[in-house]
Design a protein around this nucleic acid. Structure first.
Length: 361
DNA sequence: GTATGCTTTCGGC
DNA sequence: TTACGGCCGAAAGCATAC
């Protein structure tokens, strides 16, 4: 089953101030550039009813709520992380296997403890929802299905505070009317490609010849699409390791093309990343910069080093090099800037640098 | 011809 | 000052390897 906490940040805020529950609550990331600059992170359903959505500029949310007594709050990640940890601790007890996805979602494999009985799985889901409500006063939406794919899509069916059970024999007909873009692996380009092939809904995909899918998308993707379309998915519920990348971003006071102003900001970001790295005892091999320009376009440049490093000065030197590269290739001004580390070396990770083993330098 | 790796962009939360 | 976060993994688009 997939458990998704409802409007999580805003629900956390309601939790520590229950008087908010009847009002529109908008949780915001303020950029600090001017009074209301920033974006909406999450809003409760009262606010959503006025058209407020995640990702919306704060001023727009204010406009939609100008005639109501609404509450705008800055994000408090630390609090949400604490709440998340408590919730995940509870959820874990209901699962044979557990996999957290982001701060507010988790997959629970309950096959063994429910003996494969969907009625029992549904009872477990109800007990879990009840525990969450009694112990943490939080609601969630749950999808129960024969695998992760179906459970995830089922959880979106009814929310907030929903519970949708899709039994194996219902999976195909449940998926049939949905757009293929609901499947992981179908992004904009693949969706367009499928539309060209006359495939719009998952049912269309199911009726399409597997061999044709393989011819177009290759063996791995073609087979995956075919299986997914009829509700077959064998991805195990598995605890995730460390993140594959860590990044930090910040908004500049003013848009600029000035290297030293930008480097001043990225130095803060790389110091922060370096701290985080030391606690995780890992070494990065790829450094990236992210530049959000005045037109809100995203631009990235990255460099993979010869060997893993933990050196903060190397981050800074590489960031400078990449920023110079970006500035020489674009004439746009930078509004927000970010630094990302990835390609970590650690135990049990990619041994793809095995060739470097033989290098003599 | 498909898989894999690296870089850049997209999209969800 | 008429406007807009921060983070992550997925997807896409190549180049190269098998």
């Amino acid at each position: 089953m997939l458990v998704d906490l409802d409007y999580f940040y805003a629900q956390c805020e309601e939790l520590r101030n229950p008087s908010l529950k009847t009002k529109p609550v908008v949780v915001c990331v303020y950029s600090g550039r001017s009074k209301d600059s920033g974006a909406v992170s999450t809003a409760n359903y009262v606010a959503r009813n006025y058209g407020v959505k995640s990702g919306m500029p704060i001023f727009l949310a204010k406009k939609k709520l100008e005639n109501v007594e609404a509450v705008f709050l800055p994000v408090d990640f630390q609090f949400y992380e604490e709440m998340s940890a408590k919730v995940m601790g509870i959820l874990r007890n209901f699962a044979d296997e557990f996999e957290q996805v982001g701060i507010d979602e988790a997959y629970l494999d309950v096959t063994r403890r429910s003996l494969g009985d969907f009625g029992k799985a549904e009872e477990l889901a109800k007990m879990m929802k009840n525990d969450l409500l009694l112990q943490q006063k939080l609601t969630c939406s749950v999808g129960v299905g024969p695998n992760k794919l179906v459970a995830k899509i089922a959880s979106d069916e009814t929310k907030p505070d929903g519970l949708t059970v899709i039994r194996p024999e219902q999976a195909s007909s449940f998926l049939e009317p949905l757009l293929v873009s609901r499947l992981i692996g179908v992004g904009t380009k693949t969706f367009e490609k499928m539309l060209d092939m006359g495939i719009k809904r998952i049912g269309d995909l199911a009726r399409h010849d597997v061999q044709k899918l393989i011819a177009v998308f290759g063996r791995i993707l073609g087979t995956y699409f075919h299986n997914a379309s009829i509700g077959i998915d064998n991805e195990p519920v598995k605890e995730k390791g460390e993140a594959e990348s860590i990044s930090r971003m910040a908004t500049l006071k003013l848009d600029t093309r000035d290297l030293s102003i930008t480097l001043e900001k990225t130095a803060e970001l790389s110091n922060d990343l370096h701290q985080r790295m030391l606690t995780d005892k890992s070494a990065f091999q790829t450094v990236s910069i992210i530049a959000i320009t005045t037109d809100l376009g995203t631009h990235t440049r990255s460099k993979t080093l010869d060997k893993p490093s933990t050196d903060v000065t190397l981050i800074d030197r590489t960031v400078r090099e990449l920023l110079e590269k970006f500035l020489s290739e674009s004439d746009l001004e930078i509004r927000r800037v970010g630094v990302k580390l990835s390609n970590f070396s650690g135990v049990g990770k990619n041994q793809k640098q095995i060739t470097s083993y033989f290098q003599t330098t």
